[in-house]
Computed example of a mutant assay.
Amino acid sequence: MPSVATSPLAPRYSRPAGDIVAARRASGIAWARVEDGFHVANRDGVFLGYLDREADGTWLVFDGRSTRVGRGAGLREAMDVLIIHHQRAEQAA
C-alpha cells in the first residue's frame, strides 16, 4: 500500500515527521469519532471534513464540502492529510 505521500489521490507534501506532529498540535482541530470508521473534524465550530475507513483499512479524506482530498494508510496519516490540506488552503487565501 503506498503511503499518503506517494498516493496518486493524496495531496503532495514533503514535511519531516516532526513538522507533521507540530502541525497536528498547532492545528487547533477537534476530532470526534461518530462511529467506528468515521471521524469528523472541526475548528472553532467550523466543520472541516471527515475521514471514512474503507474495507481494506485505508482511510479516505474529505474536506468540509465532501470533496475527496486524499487518503491515508492509517488514521493518523489521514488526519495529517486533512490538517495539511487546510493549512495549504489558509496559506493560499
Rank of each mutant, 00 (worst) to 15 (best):
A5S: 03
E54P: 08
R12F: 00
A10Q: 06
T58D: 11
T67R: 15
H39E: 15
G28M: 09
R12Q: 08
R68Q: 12
T58A: 13
E54W: 12
M79H: 12
I83K: 06
V81F: 06
F38P: 07
I83H: 05
V61T: 07
V61Y: 03
R88W: 08
E54Y: 10
I20N: 03
V34F: 03
A30D: 14
L51A: 05
I84F: 05
I20D: 09
P2C: 00
N42L: 11
R24A: 14
A23V: 04
G49I: 05
T67V: 14
P8R: 05
A41N: 10
L51H: 01
S7N: 08
I29N: 11
R65V: 12
M1D: 02
L82E: 02
F62V: 09
H39G: 07
G70E: 03
D44G: 11
A26W: 00
L48K: 06
I29V: 12
S66V: 10
V61H: 04
H86E: 04
R65Q: 15
H86D: 00
D52W: 07
D56L: 04
T67C: 13
I20R: 09
S7L: 02
M79L: 09
D56W: 05
I84L: 06
A23K: 10
A78R: 07
N42P: 05
A89N: 13
H85V: 02
V46T: 15
G57H: 08
R76S: 13
A32D: 15
I83V: 01
P11M: 10
A10F: 00
D52S: 14
F62H: 05
V81A: 09
A73Q: 11
I83G: 02
M1T: 00
A92P: 13
R88G: 08
G57R: 00
P16D: 09
L48W: 05
L60C: 09
P16G: 00
S14H: 01
A22W: 07
R24L: 02
I29F: 11
G45V: 09
A30M: 12
L75F: 02
D44L: 02
A93F: 12
G64K: 01
I84D: 11
S14E: 12
R33N: 14
A92S: 15
H39N: 14
L48S: 02
S3D: 01
F38D: 08
A30K: 15
V61D: 07
D63G: 08
D56E: 10
S66Q: 12
L60W: 07
D63Y: 05
S14R: 03
